[in-house]
Design a protein around this nucleic acid. Structure first.
Lengths: 217, 217, 217, 217
DNA sequence: AATGAATGAGGTTTCATTCAT
DNA sequence: TATGAATGAAACCTCATTCAT
């Protein structure tokens, strides 16, 4: 069978590779399984991607691009609470539709090689970290965030919570963990509503207790 | 040499295996390297542990036992803030001294097998989840935690933050991520102080904005 | 483009294939590289030559035809010394300009298959062997070659020396070997002159010591 | 089957590997075939020899050591003719008993990599080249070799003839070539005698025509 | 009981060969 | 007819696992 590798086929390879890497980790991923899943022969993969490592990194970059696009575009709003709700919605949808991307992210955070870890982190975390830091700095200046909050630390805590939310949607272990903590599926309608309300409240209180307070006469 | 495999030897094997798994991941860990590090022959390892997978899971269970012991014992205090500071100190010390245990924890969260993930999560997260939920429920009842907080969700967010703290101490990727967010090493003295103050403030505000507010007339 | 595979194209393929085989050896030669060098697609090569092995053998036969043509035509002279000098000049020029052909020759001498080796040898060595044998027989009869020389053996030794000369010009290993023996490059002007003088003297003495002697009263 | 790899087994591996490399060349040699021939598993070969390349080079060094030992030790005699006859006998015996070693030698001379060829040549040809050059220089000084002979060139021609003799004994192609030139098998009793007489005569005449002449009043 | 040499299945990667376009 | 993408067999090499000593 000799169908010319169309654009879609290439995309499919990357998608299946991302799945495989996300599911098994770099070391346990099998090129032959990726080829099989994408419906191509092994040789094709090596025609388009030098080797396993290269393929992994391309999947990674792709995933991260997608991920950071989602995070940065969803965060556009003047109102903090609205922005936050937008972000949560994005995370919910994205994680459900692209669990592999999140698994990829999780997989690289296991990377034991110091140097490579550093490079990846720089590439990935750079954008959102400054986004969040700026946002918090602005908030402090505007008086909407408590003035003793360190922008750096607060952004860090904030992203930590979002990160774990991603994991809770996309990784089996974390999904189960959610069930243990909250007694229901993270996918359930009940969760969707409660999680959003509670996280918004939690973060608003954490960053601006006064406003929170003010809301309750 | 007539040392039958003493208790210590077994412990040493497990320790070295945990190191290896933590450092390299399950797939890249080498049985021969574990044997070498523990000063035994490969055969011995296979005498006591059916196969690599079994060894991995025993290391895992061991790590998790250790981890949850630390968390549960360190959290004993009447005063919420003191308890929190105790926990943070535990995390800091434990993660520095037993990074492999944390790395093991992180590794299993990659577990793609739904069923196994469920079992592991149940075993691991059960204790701390109820611990935190109870503590928050008590706080709400006692009026020290805002009454609109869901104990389940709050415990979940709380543990999420602690989890990420563990990772930030123990995993290269997350250490670098911390550097990107906070501009300094997570090990540095400056970090130690700031991180604690900021996280305590963040959590206090998140859970009890009134108290926070009250502190600033 | 409506160029059917013209004669020149076919010649070009063979030439580039010979280069590739000569440079890399049969096993390491790549069909795709040959196609690239000849400016045709791989398919074309397979249209004209059943498989890699066939192509190799055709290159071989071609090379050998070329080689023996050169040797037999260059050896035409009444005077033995002049003929020898002609041959040496031919070898020098041919080996420099067609190293691939010599490398091909060298490559087949590695042929482990007894039967195939026999066929190739018959085809290749037949012409020059009888040429040299006849020439030596004539020489003996004419009294210009010592009468105790066996025409067969002498022709054999003679061709052995010429063969090694070819190798010394065309194969990296033998070029270096020459350097080790003679302290200079086989390509150098100094070599050209010295090599010719010495080899002529060596062969004249070997075949007709009397003549040689005569030169020294 | 778990027999401990004895010294003999190691030697056997090297022997079979030398056979395989000699027969097929480096590129076409198969590790699995070597393992099979030596009656060991593939893994064993990789336990003792880093990789195919390493194995090849060890075989090579081994072969060359053996070869140069034979050549240098056999050449010990005060009388030039006797020495030469000794060398010829050595070549005859060695080539018959160790054809693989000669094939190894032939295989590396195909080495297309300039740098590696240079290193190998230096290692291999160094000893015999100086041996022969010295011997010829001494001969010139002693008046037993014609004084217009260049020691370097003469040594080169001399070794060329010996080299081809080796090939003629050990390589199928060259064996057939011998048959074409001389009409009989190089192994035959008739060849043994004739070859020696003729080569001795050829070389004596080539190097010292006067002595040759003297024998014919 | 402990050892570690040997095994060999299985993964990555290459490239001769095919055949739809 | 020419193309070159796709195929997939086959080679290298690794390392979990076994078992003779």
């Amino acid at each position: 069978m000799l169908k010319k590798l169309s654009e879609e086929k290439q995309k499919l390879i990357l998608e299946k590779a991302t799945d495989e890497f996300g599911r098994c980790g770099k070391a346990d991923a099998k090129i032959s399984r990726i080829a099989g899943a994408a419906g191509v022969s092994v040789g094709v993969i090596y025609k388009y991607y030098t080797d396993k490592d290269t393929l992994f990194h391309i999947c990674l970059e792709n995933s991260l691009k997608t991920l950071s696009e989602v995070l940065t575009t969803s965060g556009a709003s003047n109102d903090a609470e609205e922005m936050l709700r937008n972000i949560l919605a994005s995370i919910r949808e994205f994680s459900k539709e692209n669990p592999s991307v999140i698994r990829m992210y999780h997989a690289i955070t296991s990377e034991p090689d110091e140097k490579e870890a550093a490079e990846l982190a720089a590439e990935i975390e750079g954008i959102s970290s400054s986004l969040y830091k700026d946002w918090i700095s602005d908030g402090i200046e505007a008086g909407t965030i408590r003035e003793d909050a360190s922008p750096e630390m607060s952004a860090f805590f904030f992203d930590n919570l979002l990160m774990m939310l991603h994991f809770s949607y996309a990784l089996p272990y974390y999904r189960q963990r959610y069930r243990i903590y909250c007694g229901k599926d993270v996918d359930s309608a009940a969760s969707e509503k409660l999680l959003e309300e509670q996280l918004v409240a939690f973060l608003k209180a954490a960053l601006n207790p006064a406003a929170q307070q003010g809301g309750k006469p």
